[in-house]
Design a protein around this nucleic acid. Structure first.
Lengths: 222, 222
DNA sequence: GCACTGTTTTAAGCAAATTTTAAGAAACTT
DNA sequence: AAGTTTCTTAAAATTTGCTTAAAACAGTGC
């Protein structure tokens, strides 16, 4: 899942980047409003975190512009202001939620999950056949036996399962899981598919990730 | 579907070639404006991706020349510039759309599909009789049973179905699906028609691809 | 600051599937 | 029946993906 963070204070920006990366999100940071809108309009993010007070276009403006361009990406405001009118103003501009600074990272995470859930019509649990992922606790179970996955393995599996029964092309995988947008001549996907198959294969019945030659991979529901 | 990419940076050019090939397009790359125009004027592309800043003729010039030669092929600009006047300039030169670098591959793909759709009046799903193709997921169903096709098989079937009820000559097939423009003394089409018939025949009622002797093949809607 | 641990990426040889070539059999045309 | 054209099959050539090992990197504790 790709998240755009629009935040000028480097401390907070880094804090968010690191924390969200730990949670297996692919994070881009924009340090002002113009950059933020540019990135938002040229990329396909799954969620946007938007600081209210930023140089260039204000957060509200960025939010309006994004909505004007017909994007429904969930937007969460980070705001130091706390008067009711301001938050209402933000929500009316098209934001989905807001959180006041200083905030607890856990709370932010919870709100992010809520937005992603409503977007995808899912809970915190993803499943495919006998495999279950708990996004909240970062645990993966295969036949109710826990399997330890690394960050990248987890992120790749999440992407595959969110798109289950659809072919995921190499290009899309490298963009959504690795956040790489050019020069895709790497075999890192092959290697991670291999990791996942090894870790999940002997536990669940059959190799549930099939290869679609010349295109990518597909995780099938049976 | 044939796409011409006019782009000088090898990294981006390769990225585009690979990504578009994954999506079953036949891709040619020109590394400068003159080559680009030469290819565009001597070939029948379904779409042109044109970088703005390229050696030789500028992207704008190539676009103008193409339009001057009375071609209506859809043209999408790739541009690093982002002032409104520039893009308007590009669109006035006869381009159909533009996308700013750096871009998300999926967004580019969406824009390409929009151009091809308006051109062909179709969505992401193609169908013929009991056969359905999902271009987004690269899946083919025959009587709602999935059939596994390779890249070339998929591309050939797509071409036949996009031109259903029209005779597709061998020359056009070899040009649009294989991107070969000389020396058509190959029997590769015969072989692939055979593959398709075998894979789809026993599932759907009758052989839906008929041979038109001396000319080519036709996929009929019944 | 350095060694240790685990993760991620790169690279290379091998295996497997796809794509192309080729050639004889079959079908159609004249 | 002769001459084309297409079909079918098999094998060669090529491409793509799998697997493994090692290198690069990051984080932790001493």
């Amino acid at each position: 899942m790709r998240i755009l963070v629009v935040e000028d204070e480097p401390g907070i920006a880094n804090f968010l980047r690191d924390g969200l990366t730990e949670e297996s999100f692919a994070v881009d940071v924009a340090e002002n409003g113009n950059k933020g809108f540019e990135l938002a309009s040229t990329n396909d993010y799954d969620l946007v975190l938007l600081d209210w007070m930023i140089p260039g276009l204000s957060g509200i403006e960025v939010c309006r512009q994004i909505r004007k361009s017909n994007s429904l990406v969930p937007i969460i405001f980070l705001t130091a202001k706390d008067t009711v009118s301001d938050t209402v103003f933000g929500l009316e501009a098209g934001a989905n939620d807001y959180i006041r600074k200083p905030f607890q990272f856990e709370e932010l995470l919870a709100r992010i999950r809520v937005q992603l859930r409503t977007k995808e019509g899912e809970q915190n649990i993803l499943s495919l056949g006998s495999i279950t992922m708990n996004l909240g606790t970062h645990q993966v179970f295969s036949n109710s036996k826990e399997v330890e996955l690394t960050q990248k393995e987890f992120a790749l599996l999440e992407y595959l399962i969110r798109n289950k029964n659809k072919v995921c092309t190499r290009t899309r995988i490298i963009e959504h899981v690795w956040d790489i947008h050019f020069d895709a001549d790497t075999s890192v996907i092959d290697v991670y598919i291999n990791f996942l198959r090894k870790k999940l294969h002997d536990v669940s019945a059959k190799s549930f990730i099939s290869t679609v030659r010349g295109v990518g991979y597909i995780a099938r529901d049976l």
